[in-house]
């Protein structure tokens, strides 16, 4: 009788346990740096796909279509807001490039042990920001 009761109770507990809401607050979990580099590789990839590719095509078209469109592009690129947007896009591209190089190296079994993986992801972040900064200096 008691055993039956206890058995029932544990069944109930298992059931309740399975129904317990899973709560993963991604903002409260501190992600390791390689994870951040990886997710930023994805986010930058999506943004490079859209709006990146159509904007690149519009720019290329303006540069090559006619004298007028070329001058319109030049005027557009002198706008500080456009310059900032360009630099942000450039940062996404450079991060995507550096992180991509890192992933190819990881595929080649280079830098896969944890300390090196951390160092590599730090390097990816720093070089992305640094190269963007150099580009900013160059266009201003």
């Amino acid at each position: 009788m008691l055993l039956n009761f206890l058995f029932g109770l544990s069944c109930l507990e298992t059931k309740l346990h399975n129904q317990r809401p899973k709560h993963l607050n991604l903002l409260k979990i501190k992600q390791p740096l390689p994870a951040i580099v990886s997710i930023f590789h994805r986010i930058s990839g999506v943004l490079l796909f859209f709006p990146g590719i159509p904007l690149l095509l519009v720019g290329l078209q303006m540069a090559l279509q006619s004298q007028q469109s070329f001058e319109a592009l030049q005027t557009l690129l002198r706008d500080p807001l456009v310059k900032i947007a360009l630099l942000v896009s450039l940062w996404f591209f450079l991060h995507h490039l550096c992180a991509g190089i890192r992933f190819v190296l990881l595929d080649l079994q280079i830098g896969i042990v944890l300390p090196q993986a951390r160092l590599g992801s730090r390097l990816v972040f720093i070089s992305g920001v640094l190269l963007t900064f150099l580009a900013a200096v160059a266009i201003w």
């Binding site: 994805r42 990839g45 796909f49 590719i53």
Partner: peptide, 13 residues
């Protein structure tokens, strides 16, 4: 290459 690369990436995502 860019479009092929974008396709594989977008499909994975």
């Amino acid at each position: 290459c860019l479009f092929w690369h974008a396709w594989v990436g977008m499909r994975n995502i």
